[in-house]
Design a protein around this nucleic acid. Structure first.
Lengths: 223, 223
DNA sequence: ACCTGAACACCGTTCAAGT
DNA sequence: ACCTGAACACCGTTCAAGT
């Protein structure tokens, strides 16, 4: 009972790194990357822009922290009962869905190399590569290839999300691209034109996972 | 003879899209992405910032044109006498080397989806996928996987290039990352720690091409 | 048609001053 | 210790005015 009255008035809460980062994620989700401004963030937190700098060193750290917050929850989950292939697929799917929900993540995932969110994905992928009994000398290459592929799709999806005007839905977007491809010069773009017809009924997510499977069979074909 | 006197005084040449784009590439290469400013560009072209807008619609187009200029020359070359595998490898190597020389390219390659430089790479890769006699229904997936992988490595390399202070050389950088990985929590990062030792003698370029080969064997293993 | 450069509407970041 | 908000040093972009 009385649950309604327990909802805290966030404006009164003291500022904290946590509140700042979650407000940043909200801003990025609702108004996009260009909308994440220290002034806009400050207004939302009912304070001045300078206050944010007490908890965060600057915009780069803020973006990094926002990315990490999203990715960390996206890949949480354990893969104890799954085959290595299934575990890798689940992990990849987690990253894909996170970027689908928060397109800006795709752009910043690779931005801090050797740093937090990417390294976590690398570690998780690498363990499953070991579980696949890939020879030690080939493990690094296999894990890197999977990670690079995931990051590549992430970046493309983020770019797509940025180009399209916010209202557009998936099929509408694919139809537009297909139409554009169909108009390309037949001499210069024969292949692209030949696959344009497949676009409208194509499923980003399934295609992404098919790519993962392709790489997985390349990894296991070697043994 | 007299070649020296024929060198044109570029300051007197009229402004053109071509001159603007090549000045932008120079600026990006020498002072990095944060150095590409309409004011800096204008100064280099001995004009005012407003003049640039007569030839280019804005910064996004400028960055796109600069990226396209670099990529187009990087992947020029014909693959008539090569096997499909060799042709794909050569193409990938071209993109890799271009990004190695111009790290900023990696960030902007994916930024205009379905647009010029990426589409050109997609087309070239796709034709070789056809030459590999991949069934029609699987061609799109195969070409997309290769492209995504290339873009992923591109993005990571660009990120690395941005993080490192300009002077640092390859081995110095790898040693630093290896040292960092070796200090990770053994419970959280067992895999990453286990491959840290391979980093110092690892060759980015060879590793990248090994990933291409991995995907290629995944593609051909299916037939 | 093309160029000039001042001006506009923003940014991220700093910092003296407050509590 | 933490917050405030004015101020600084920039941006990209526009546009009246020139040639």
């Amino acid at each position: 009972m009385a649950t309604r009255t327990r909802r805290p008035d966030r404006r009164q809460e003291p500022l904290s790194r946590e509140r700042i980062v979650s407000a940043a994620v909200e801003l990025l989700d609702t108004v996009g990357e260009s909308g994440l401004t220290f002034r806009a963030l400050a207004e939302r937190l009912a304070t001045g822009p300078g206050a944010i700098y007490w908890h965060v060193t600057g915009k780069a750290e803020l973006l990094g922290a926002a990315t990490e917050a999203v990715v960390t929850t996206a890949i949480a989950g354990d893969d104890a009962d799954a085959t290595p292939q299934e575990a890798i697929r689940a992990l990849a799917r987690g990253v894909f869905d996170a970027i689908d929900a928060h397109p800006w993540v795709g752009t910043h995932l690779a931005h801090a190399p050797g740093q937090s969110p990417m390294l976590r994905v690398f570690e998780r992928v690498g363990r499953q590569v070991q579980a696949l009994r890939v020879p030690e000398a080939a493990q690094f290459t296999a894990a890197s290839a999977l990670l690079s592929y995931i990051l590549g799709v992430a970046g493309q999806n983020a770019a797509n999300g940025r180009t399209v005007r916010p209202g557009t839905d998936r099929t509408e977007f694919l139809d537009a691209v297909a139409a554009q491809w169909a108009e390309l010069d037949p001499d210069q773009y024969p292949f692209t034109r030949s696959v344009a017809g497949q676009l409208p009924e194509h499923d980003d997510r399934a295609e992404f996972l098919a790519g993962i499977d392709l790489i997985l069979s390349g990894i296991t074909a070697r043994q």
